[in-house]
């Protein structure tokens, strides 16, 4: 029994636990919005696009979050710009822009190998996070969470129906910029916990799972955020015993929950659909 409490005895574990939970929660909040518009891959794209920013920040001795945030925003802006000017489809635009940024990051890190431990960016290293970074992550997440709590209804309306948003005096453009700024900021925060490659899971899986469980957006947010917070906390905790990458554990947990919902969800799950087809057949006979 006492063995299970061991992680709580270490400062670095405590820090990892609450930082993970915070980041997991706020990423899950964003995930609920992203999947509604088919923008889920934006999370992945931003996760990779921040890498050159991190590399550059290390070289210049700046806080990594600043550099990451700048390139993240540049990538988001670049995608919006290419999309606006050309008639290329979203997936192609996202693909071209984020690989360009990621390649730049890898190149920088390989030319200047001592400056950055690229592995800690790609895979995350929450267990090794120092106090400064932890504080940065905490501030980013807390501010984002507050903004989202105040603005989620307006954002929902913009995602659902921009014309109507305009009709009630909301400026959709301003809110979209706000949203992508938050997304870039939270992607930066999530880098520390799960790394660039698994950021995508943090900003997709909780929302996708919640989507299977409810038809109301308010509830969807609650489910998604709870799932993000709990899996991140538990994931960090379990990773102590497994001695494995925290990001991997968190995402595996989220995937397990998704699969459970996929099978057992009351209306949108496989079993429910089988049942309703069977009922329909019986009625037809």
């Amino acid at each position: 029994m006492t063995e299970l409490l061991v992680p709580f005895a270490y400062d670095y574990m405590l820090k990892a636990l609450w930082v993970s939970a915070l980041v997991g929660g706020v990423c899950a909040f964003l995930s609920a919005f992203l999947m509604l518009r088919g923008w889920s891959l934006m999370g992945d794209a931003l996760g990779h696009a921040v890498v050159p920013g991190v590399a550059m920040a290390y070289m210049l001795g700046l806080p990594y979050a600043a550099g990451a945030f700048v390139t993240g925003l540049l990538a988001a802006g670049g995608m919006a710009f290419v999309r606006h000017v050309t008639s290329l489809r979203e997936d192609a635009v996202i693909g071209v822009v984020f690989t360009a940024f990621f390649a730049a990051g890898v190149l920088m890190a390989s030319i200047n190998p001592i400056a950055v431990n690229i592995q800690s960016i790609v895979l995350g290293n929450i267990l090794g996070i120092d106090d400064n970074d932890a504080l940065q992550v905490a501030i980013i997440s807390a501010v984002s969470l507050l903004v989202l709590l105040a603005k989620w209804k307006d954002l929902m309306l913009v995602f659902f129906d921009e014309s109507h948003a305009r009709a009630v005096g909301i400026n959709p453009m301003r809110l979209k910029i706000l949203f992508f700024t938050l997304l870039a900021a939270c992607t930066v925060a999530a880098l520390q916990t799960v790394g660039a490659c698994l950021v995508i899971a943090m900003v997709v899986t909780p929302g996708a799972t919640a989507y299977l469980l409810t038809d109301r957006f308010g509830r969807l947010l609650v489910i998604s955020v709870s799932m993000g917070t709990v899996t991140s906390f538990v994931g960090a905790y379990v990773s102590y015993f497994l001695d494995g990458a925290t990001g991997g554990v968190i995402v595996v947990l989220q995937t397990l929950l998704f699969l459970t919902a996929f099978v057992f969800a009351p209306r949108h799950g496989i079993l429910a659909q089988r049942r309703s087809i069977a009922t329909a057949r019986e009625q037809a006979v």
Binding site: L36, K153, D154, M156, L157, F159, F160, D161, S163, H164, R166, A167, V168, G169, I170, Y211, T214, D215, R216, F217, L220
Partner: peptide, 29 residues
């Protein structure tokens, strides 16, 4: 708030997780 807009059916995402009453409530924002 003087202009209301009723969109074309194909401009609406019908899979969006909102109930009928939620949509009507959006009119009150």
């Amino acid at each position: 708030n003087i202009v209301a807009y009723v969109p074309q059916a194909e401009d609406v995402d019908w899979n969006f997780p909102v109930l009928v009453e939620d949509v009507v409530m959006m009119g009150r924002y």
